[in-house]
């Protein structure tokens, strides 16, 4: 979904904001756009949104920080998450997550120093019938074992 990050271009983003002109309550969709383009929502983009929507930048910051899918700091090229929903939990997702954290040397929510990976928190993703699940850049992988997880990471790094 987003293995490439765009350079911040405020003029371009302004056009995106304008494209939401006719909808009511456009903030969340706009934040999604920013997150998709940049992997996070840069401050200058939040300020731009603030100016265009006449919503204070504090409020925008408050909204962005409320939702776990929005990031206010740069994130890695790849977002990996281990589902911690109940069924996945019962099926050992805790071990998967520990393994991932150990392997990448970061905790959930953090980004590797090379900017390759971010471990994102994932709550139930509605694939419980094939637990445990992981997601990489939005794509769901079912019934994942530790070996598979290792392979998937290698696959990602190659890209």
């Amino acid at each position: 979904m987003m293995s490439q990050r765009e350079k911040i271009n405020l003029e371009k983003f302004e056009l995106i904001i304008d494209s939401f002109q006719n909808i009511k309550g456009p903030l969340i969709p706009i934040l999604h756009e920013a997150e998709n383009m940049y992997g996070y929502i840069p401050i200058e983009v939040q300020n731009l949104i603030s100016k265009k929507l006449k919503i204070s930048n504090a409020e925008i910051n408050g909204v962005a920080s409320f939702y776990s899918m929005f990031h206010t700091n740069p994130t890695g090229l790849h977002h990996i998450g281990v589902c911690t929903g109940t069924t996945c939990h019962l099926n050992g997702s805790g071990k998967l997550l520990k393994h991932l954290e150990h392997k990448l040397g970061i905790r959930e929510g953090e980004t590797t120093s090379d900017g390759q990976f971010t471990i994102v928190p994932v709550k139930c993703i509605g694939n419980c019938d094939a637990a445990p699940n992981i997601t990489i850049d939005g794509k769901v992988y079912n019934a994942v074992t530790i070996t598979q997880l290792d392979e998937l990471i290698i696959e990602c790094s190659d890209k």
Partner: peptide
């Protein structure tokens, strides 16, 4: 009508701050 303060984060991590925790000067 200024909106210089906002809640940040959520749940028990919620706190009140100026925009981006950058202090008053940066805020409105």
């Amino acid at each position: 009508g200024v909106g210089a303060l906002s809640f940040n984060e959520r749940g028990k991590d919620t706190y009140v701050s100026f925009a981006f925790d950058k202090g008053m000067d940066y805020s409105m």
